[in-house]
Design a protein around this nucleic acid. Structure first.
Lengths: 235, 235
DNA sequence: TACATAAATTTGTAAGATAAAATAGCTCGT
DNA sequence: ACGAGCTATTTTATCTTACAAATTTATGTA
């Protein structure tokens, strides 16, 4: 999922800086100079430069001689980069970003479900069903149920056959974790199994329109539940 | 749009390697070792390493000691990264990727248009109208008409108020350039002005459902036109 | 003041040395 | 022959130092 499994100095600094940038730690005093980075994080120039270069590649920074390194405005960030999405999740939750995530899901996932209904093979349908069964069997274990829920949605993205849709798995992962974190506060609430069953059934039957509607219903239900539960807050 | 305006050695090598990877130049012999990179491209280790690190940040490469640097499978690439999208465009056109692009557009743009109908302010509507007028006024100049067409679609993404939608501007840019490149081969064909007018009108009237349908019609029309014109080719 | 020139700051590039990781190969005892 | 453990090798990872380039600031001179 992330850029690399390894935890070298460079990737450690990448994580630290990425999170700090997303939180806004450098908004006041500006981004440190290369020399300051080395001092503050005990890194060599090589490590500092390579971490900055990777953050530049993700749109978070830009550097020019004499002018220094600057944090780019959020409009320039590669928001669909898995690392950036994860850093956004790890910072303080905000209703605004959850709504934005869900709007993206409302655009993508119903269309992906419709395509899956037209194209999914047996193995892909089995993967979707495994996700649903996991949700059924783990009603007691919130973490396991969440993992199964994510598996269900990602399996549909895969079954769509369009690799670009699959790129959004990190965002969906994030959105679902936020969603679950909130809905868990509502006593006894769990993801709606029947709604998920309806999506699977439509895909199995090759019913593109039905799959699209059923998936949209899941997302709208989740969105309305949250809206009714927690009023819009700042940010 | 791209990672950096500057044309330093590092960014030059980034471009060269990114294009080569996307084309598949390293599929046979594997990706060169750091030392080989320096020799083949006349770069210092610093430049070679930083370019590789940026490509790693975009999901195209991974590196481990002793094992070397390898091209990741396409499923791992950050396909929505503006640089990656541009490199994909610059390689040989293929019907498959055009269809995939259009599927993404069919998911995102109608929803963006619906949101724009609910939220767009006067300045944002003016930007959309400017794009449409540009298309009207530049019927003779294909390049200018294409630019106006792109402006029109990007203005709607902006007016949606969701920054994640705007991330797809590079993909839409690419898709439209491919589309225009093909439709220009059809004698006398130009983008349908009335269809675009319908979208603007619906947004101005706050008609979310109408805007969504009108935008979907534009994309479906474009897709069908191409399908009828050029039969599915390899890749 | 206006303009040219020098100085200072910060990133960009280069090169060499050493460390660490992971594979391949070898030695040796059984 | 076989396997455990050690050694060698390859390649990336890290550190250090030096210099170049770009750009802003300061300075000096007419």
């Amino acid at each position: 999922m992330r850029t690399q499994r390894g935890a070298s100095l460079t990737y450690g600094l990448l994580e630290t800086l990425g999170q700090s940038i997303v939180i806004g730690d450098f908004d006041k005093n500006g981004f440190p100079t290369e020399a300051e980075l080395c001092i503050r994080f005990g890194a060599s120039r090589t490590v500092a430069r390579e971490a900055v270069k990777m953050l530049t590649a993700k749109g978070l920074l830009s550097a020019r001689p004499r002018q220094g390194t600057k944090v780019e405005p959020i409009a320039h960030w590669n928001l669909l980069d898995p690392d950036v999405t994860r850093w956004l999740m790890e910072r303080q939750y905000s209703n605004k970003i959850y709504r934005e995530f869900t709007e993206v899901r409302l655009a993508i996932e119903p269309v992906a479900a419709a395509l899956a209904a037209q194209r999914a093979n047996k193995a892909e349908i089995r993967a979707i069903r495994d996700g649903l069964n996991g949700m059924r069997n783990e009603l007691h274990d919130h973490d396991a149920a969440l993992a199964a829920d994510i598996d269900f949605h990602v399996a549909i993205l895969k079954a769509s056959g369009n690799p670009f849709f699959l790129q959004l798995r990190a965002l969906i992962n994030t959105a679902l974790r936020i969603s679950i974190g909130l809905t868990n506060k509502i006593a006894g609430h769990t993801a709606s199994i029947p709604a998920h069953e309806a999506v699977l059934l439509a895909i199995e039957n090759g019913d593109a329109v039905g799959a699209e509607k059923a998936m949209r219903a899941i997302l709208l239900e989740s969105l309305e539940l949250l809206a009714s539960f927690q009023p819009e807050t700042a940010h």
